[in-house]
């Protein structure tokens, strides 16, 4: 039973990590660059949710009505006004700009909200559980998160497959120059993709803020986990995100069960092991554009 409950909690933790990796995978899949401020944007979303719940008296989940459009706009502006200006100079400017942005967000949050650890409260939802088997109880929040990941992935899949803008995303991902010849504006597509990623980040920020407390400097470790998810799953592969999240969650929970201080370490080692065996991840989908 201990084995089973460890595995179940690993899978549920994997749901959180998959959600964390989803936004990063989307931006990598379309723009081929890693947003180093990804983790900090997640923490920013948690803090914004906190501000919205306090000011408008909404519950965290309802605050998403405000948060998703705000974060979408923020993402669109970040790509459209800043990152699109340095597209032609390779990946280094984007890496450095998002790295700088990470420090701006961290210290901005520190100034705005103090260094205390915060938490989002949604009534009794955080502690509610469902008993699946005698002796095996799982939390409702992790189940909601897993459901959210699956719904978002299905939604993205439908978007990419059946809509005009989805085809524009795929075309720009494959070759922005040819896509431009077909009448697509790659810069607009990039900005939309970053907006979409930030909308997903808003959901991530709220669910993670309810799951555990957060502080201004939690961004980097979230970025690392998100990155590990897409390294394991395969770069730019949406389905790989789910598997990557599960593998990361399971390896952390199993490592933690063996020795509590190994919790993070086994996750990192699993990632490095995948890098050694299959450097392009388990489900490589994005073709190399260099």
């Amino acid at each position: 039973m201990i084995v089973l409950s460890t595995l179940v909690s690993g899978v549920l933790l994997g749901g959180f990590y998959a959600l964390l990796g989803l936004g990063l995978s989307l931006t990598f899949g379309i723009m081929r660059t890693v947003n180093l401020a990804h983790g900090d944007l997640v923490v920013l979303a948690s803090f914004l949710a906190l501000a919205v719940t306090q000011m408008l008296g909404l519950s965290p989940l309802v605050s998403l009505i405000v948060l998703v459009p705000v974060m979408f706009g923020l993402g669109y502006a970040l790509q459209g006004l800043v990152l699109n200006r340095v597209l032609k100079d390779g990946m280094m400017p984007a890496v450095i700009i998002t790295f700088g942005l990470a420090f701006v967000i961290q210290n901005g949050l520190l100034m705005g909200f103090s260094a205390d650890r915060m938490v989002l409260r949604q009534g009794t939802l955080e502690t509610a559980g469902v008993t699946l088997l005698p002796g095996l109880t799982v939390g409702v929040l992790p189940l909601i998160t897993l459901g959210a990941v699956l719904a978002l992935m299905a939604g993205l899949q439908l978007l990419f497959r059946y809509t005009l803008i989805g085809r524009a995303f795929r075309a720009t991902s494959d070759d922005p120059q040819i896509a431009a010849l077909m009448g697509i504006d790659p810069k607009h597509v990039y900005a939309l993709a970053m907006g979409l990623a930030c909308a997903i980040i808003a959901v991530t920020g709220v669910l993670m803020g309810m799951r555990s407390n957060f502080s201004a400097f939690d961004g980097p470790i979230r970025l690392i986990f998100a990155f590990e998810v897409i390294i394991i799953g395969g770069m730019g592969s949406l389905n790989g995100v789910l598997v990557g999240g599960m593998i990361l969650g399971l390896s952390q929970v199993i490592g933690g069960a063996l020795n509590p201080s190994w919790f993070q370490l086994t996750g990192h080692l699993a990632t490095l092991a995948v890098l050694i065996v299959r450097p392009s991840g388990l489900f490589p989908e994005t073709i190399d554009r260099s």
Partner: peptide
């Protein structure tokens, strides 16, 4: 390990190694 990765992936992987 790192030279199997390109560009931005190389960047984050160096960080993961430092974290380990």
């Amino acid at each position: 390990l790192l030279f199997r990765l390109q560009g931005a992936y190389f960047a984050v992987a160096t960080w993961v190694i430092a974290e380990v």
